Each structure stands twice: as structure tokens, then as C-alpha cells.
Amino acid sequence: MKKQAVAVGFVLFSFMLPTKASAASFDQLYIFGDSLSDQGNVFNATEETFPPRSSYFEGRFSDGPLWVDYLASQLGLKPTLLTDIDFTTIPPTPVPTQGINFAFGGASSGLGNALVPDPRLPGVLKQVLGFAETLKTNNQTADPDALYTLWGGANDFFFINPKDSATPINNISLALNTLVEIGAKNILVFNLPDLGKVPAATIGRNPTTLSQSTSDFNLGLATTVSALSKNPDLNIIPIDIYSLFNQASELGITNAKESCLSRLDICKPGDNKFLFWDDFHPTTGVHKAIADAALAAIDAKSVPEPSINLGILALGAFGAVGVLKRQQKKSALVSAARIVDA
């Protein structure tokens, strides 16, 4: 019953507001999350050693582009990676005119990384709080015409505590409310797929516990989204990943239990019949379906009419991360090879 409520709830939330404008009105794209949204921040931080080029696509945790790559292309935007910004210059360069990708592989829902205990590898909440602090320090607010995306929580269950759903719910809800407080108007919010059905669930983990925690997390997140959606000035757009993964067969996927990397005898990069590329991460074909679902939800919901562009160019809140690849080097990230997060 809980699972059904989660699925129905997120689908209903996607159609609560009338359409006012198209997605083309977005002028910037800001991404907060973990490896499912990381376009290369961990790759840069580890001096392009992880994820390995031999098995992964251009610093992504998949066999091809991620959902954010596809969506950004559809919106005509190209956000700057946080680790590409040089904070040693004044002003920092390059100036991110089309947004920033703050997502890091291994990010917990909170302040740190679920796998590498390094304060310069921010969790999802810290990514948002740092962004907010940067704006406040410069007496700015978030660009109301930008699109903000928020997706995290899975690493808490896989690597921290599979039974504690309250902490990730609180962290993601706080991150979402913080974005609203600093002026964000258009926010994509993703729930979690059934973690008990991910290939990694059977590797030293309890699938039943992970499934229950997923349901609890999604219900808690849906409650937060429902409350915020009552504000007519906000455009909160929930994306129901839970239902999307459970209906994988409709995408032509015939193997939702094994990872492609574990069956290279019958699976190669770009094989759209596999749901997962490795034990945690979906294939690029699934990422494409996620991007299509996100774009459809955007078009189905209200996008506020473009306001006067305030010219807000958020330059990031983690200067230390910006110089990580120059100062930290490989020695401080020896354990990065253990990053197999979701």
C-alpha cells in the first residue's frame, strides 16, 4: 500500500498546476546530487582516474551520457562543473553563465561523502547550503528563471544506515526548502527507485530492508513536495523514478536484475535491454528515459513567465573543491577507488 501511495502521489503532483510557458524560458541549470547526476566532478577531483575510462563514459557513472546531459541538451544549456571553476582567480574563472553542476559521486544526503570522508567532497545538503551561503554573502538571490534539480538519498541507505530513512528525508527536505528560501522558483525533485531491486542490494545487504526504506523515504519526500506545491509562486516538479524503474519493461528492458558489466558476454555499452550498467547505476538508455520523463513533467506543469534577468552568476561555495585537483592529488583520494555509489 505504501508503494502504491508513493507512485500515485508523485504522478498526481506532476499535474497540479496549469501550464504557463515552455521549458525554453530557463536561462540556467543548477544540479545538486550524487553520482546519478555527476557529469565529472569526481573524475576531475581524482585527476581523471575514477570512474575508470575503461568501463565508464567520460567521467560519468554509466556507459554513456546521464539524464542531466540529455536534459541540458534539450534545454540548450551547458552547466559548468564545480571542479572546473578556478577559485584562485578574481573573479573565479570560467564564469558559469549557464549554471553549475554541484553533484559529486558518493555524496550522502547530508554534509559529507558516504564513501570518502573528505570535507571537500560535499554531500547534497552541503552543496545546497554552500550555494545559498555564496548568494547571501554577495547579497544575491537565486535566479528565478533558472531550473534547479535535486536528487539524492540512496547512498545513505547503501553505505551509512539502511534502516534510517528519517535522516535522508530531513536532509533532502531541508535542501529543498533552502532552495525555495533563497529564491529558486523551478525545482525538479527526484524520488528513489526501489533500492531493494538494485543489483547491489543482494551484495551483503538486505533487499527487504532497502525496499522498505525506499518507500518510507519516498513518502516523506512526497509530503514535503505536496506542502511546497501549495505555494502558487513555486514550480515544484516531482519526477517519479520509483514508478519509472518498476515499469522498465515498457522501455524495452528485458534484464532488470543483472548489471551489464557483470554480463559482458551478452551485454555491451549502449545495450538498451539492461536496466543497470553496474551494480548501482542505470545504463545511458535509462538515463535518456529519465530525461524524457523530466522534460514531459516540465512541459506539463507551470513554468513562471520569465522575469527580469538579475544576472546572478553563482560562483559556487566550495573554493577548496575548486583547487582539489591541484592540491589534494591522488594521495588524499586513495580510497576513491571504492566509490561505487548510487
Rank of each mutant, 00 (worst) to 15 (best):
F159V: 00
V128E: 00
C267A: 14
I241C: 05
E48N: 07
V334L: 15
S307T: 15
E58Q: 15
A154D: 06
S229L: 11
V116W: 03
P119C: 11
N161Q: 13
I266Q: 15
T89A: 15
R338D: 15
F190R: 03
P144Y: 07
I31M: 05
D145E: 11
G9F: 00
N218P: 11
A114F: 06
P282F: 05
P207A: 14
E181F: 05
L275D: 02
D69W: 13
S55G: 12
G106M: 08
G9A: 06
L71P: 02
Q247F: 06
V340G: 09
E181V: 02
R205P: 06
A227T: 15
C267Q: 07
A294M: 06
N231K: 13
Q328P: 00
T224R: 10
G204A: 12
P162I: 01
F57H: 14
I241T: 15
Q28W: 05
S229E: 13
G64S: 09
L315M: 11
S73E: 15
A142G: 12
Y56R: 08
L71Y: 01
Q328C: 15
R338L: 14
T89W: 10
N255Q: 09
G311A: 04
D86C: 09
F158S: 08
G99I: 02
A201W: 10
V8F: 08
P168S: 05
F158P: 09
S14W: 05
A175I: 02
D27L: 04
G105A: 15
G76Q: 07
L12T: 11
K78Y: 04
A72D: 04
P282K: 08
A200W: 00
A289W: 02
Q212L: 13
L195H: 08
G319T: 08
P52I: 15
K273M: 03
V189Y: 01
A142C: 14
T83M: 05
F274N: 01
Y242Q: 06
F15W: 01
P122Y: 06
A184K: 09
P119L: 06
T167I: 07
I160Y: 01
A154K: 03
L71T: 03
V68W: 02
F32E: 04
F87Q: 10
I236S: 02
V11G: 06
E48S: 12
T141V: 04
L188E: 07
L176N: 03
L125V: 07
V116A: 09
A294P: 05
S37L: 06
G153S: 10
N155M: 04
V286N: 04
L29N: 01
S211D: 09
L310R: 10
K230V: 04
P65E: 14
L179G: 04
N272Q: 12
G64A: 10
V116G: 03
A175Y: 00
N171G: 03
P238C: 13
L310P: 00
D265M: 02
V68H: 05
